[in-house]
Design a protein around this nucleic acid. Structure first.
Lengths: 158, 158
DNA sequence: GATAATGATTATGGTCAATAACTATATTGT
DNA sequence: ACAATATAGTTATTGACCATAATCATTATC
C-alpha cells in the first residue's frame, strides 16, 4: 500500500492529480488554516485589530503585569516585533505600560478596562467565525482536532 | 503546582494564563503548523527548493502539460507570483515550458527527468521530517487528523 | 473586423518576521 | 567595588511573501 499512482484516499475535486502534496500534513494544515485565518482577520479588522494585536491584548488581559519578554515567549515571536504592537495598543488606551520598580528595564503590561472589554468582544466574534467555518465538524471531531493540535504543539523537542 | 482554576481542558506548559487563544482553532492550528513548516523548509533548502517551488514541481510532475493558470488555481496562489518560481525551475532544468500549438498564449509545463527525480527525493525527505514531528500521534490519530483537515479545506463555501 | 476576454508577464506596494546593533539597567565574579 | 557579562526593551534594516494593477500577445465574441 505504500506506493501507487492512484491514491484512493484523496480524490481531487478539480481534475488536477496529486500524489504527494495532499498526503503531507503540513500542506493540508496550511490549507485548512487558510480557511480560518482570513475570516478571523476580517472580523478583527472591524475593531482595528490585527491577529497579532488581538493575541497580545488577550494574553495581557489574562496575565496582568506580564512583561514584554514573557509575552514574546508566550506568543513565540521576537521581542523586537512586539514593540510596535505594544505601542499601538498603548496609544489606543487598551493597555498600560508601567515600569516595574524592582527592575527598571522591564515594563509591566496590563489591559485597561476598555482593553479587556474589546478583547472579550473580539474573542466572541472570532469564535463565531470559527464556528461557522468549522461547522462541518461535529463536537467530537472538533474536540479531537483540538486535542491533536495541542499534542503536536506540545512536542517541544528538536 | 501551576494554578489553572479556569479551563481544565488546556494546560499551559509555562506559567502564562490563557483563557481565549488556546481555545481558538486558528491559533492552535497555526502553532501546530509552525512545528512542521520550519522543518520542511530546512530539508527542502538542502535541495535549493522552497516550499512553494517544491509544491509547483510536485504538481507539475503529477500533471504533465498543466498550464500556469491551472497550477496557480491548484495551489491557490496568484498567477503573477508563479512566474518567478516557474522561471527558476526552468532555469535549473527541472521543468520545461513549451507553447501549446492550439493556444499560443499558454505554456504547457512538464517536469524533466531530473525534476521528477528531485521531486521524489525531496518528497521522501519532507515525509521523513513530518513523520518525526508527528511521531507522537499513532496511525489512527494521524489518519483522522488528515481526514478532518481535508474536510475543513473542502468547505469551499462563503 | 472591432471589442472583449484570457494567459502570461512586469512592476509595485504592503505586511510580516528575522537579525543585528544600540541603550539602559541588572547580575556576576573576583 | 568594579569590570565583565547578561538581560529588557528599542530601533533600523532586510528579505520573504502576497496581492494588485497595468501591459502584451493571443484568442474568443458579436
Amino acid at each position: 500500500m505504500p506506493k501507487s499512482e492512484e491514491n484512493p484516499d484523496h480524490r481531487e475535486a478539480s481534475g488536477v492529480e496529486d500524489t504527494v502534496l495532499g498526503n503531507l500534513i503540513g500542506y493540508r494544515m496550511k490549507r485548512a488554516y487558510m480557511q480560518i485565518q482570513p475570516e478571523a482577520q476580517r472580523v478583527l479588522a472591524e475593531d482595528d485589530l490585527r491577529v497579532v494585536s488581538f493575541s497580545c491584548l488577550s494574553i495581557i488581559t489574562d496575565n496582568p503585569g506580564i512583561v514584554q519578554s514573557e509575552l514574546a515567549e508566550a506568543l513565540q515571536m521576537e521581542r523586537s516585533n512586539l514593540v510596535v504592537v505594544i505601542d499601538e495598543l498603548e496609544d489606543r488606551g487598551l493597555i498600560a505600560r508601567k515600569k516595574v520598580p524592582t527592575d527598571r528595564r522591564r515594563y509591566a503590561l496590563t489591559a485597561t478596562l476598555r482593553g479587556r472589554r474589546l478583547r472579550d468582544r473580539a474573542a466572541l466574534r472570532v469564535r463565531q467565525v470559527e464556528d461557522a467555518v468549522v461547522g462541518c465538524l461535529d463536537a467530537e471531531d472538533r474536540a479531537r482536532l483540538m486535542a491533536v493540535l495541542e499534542r503536536l504543539e506540545a512536542r517541544r523537542a528538536r
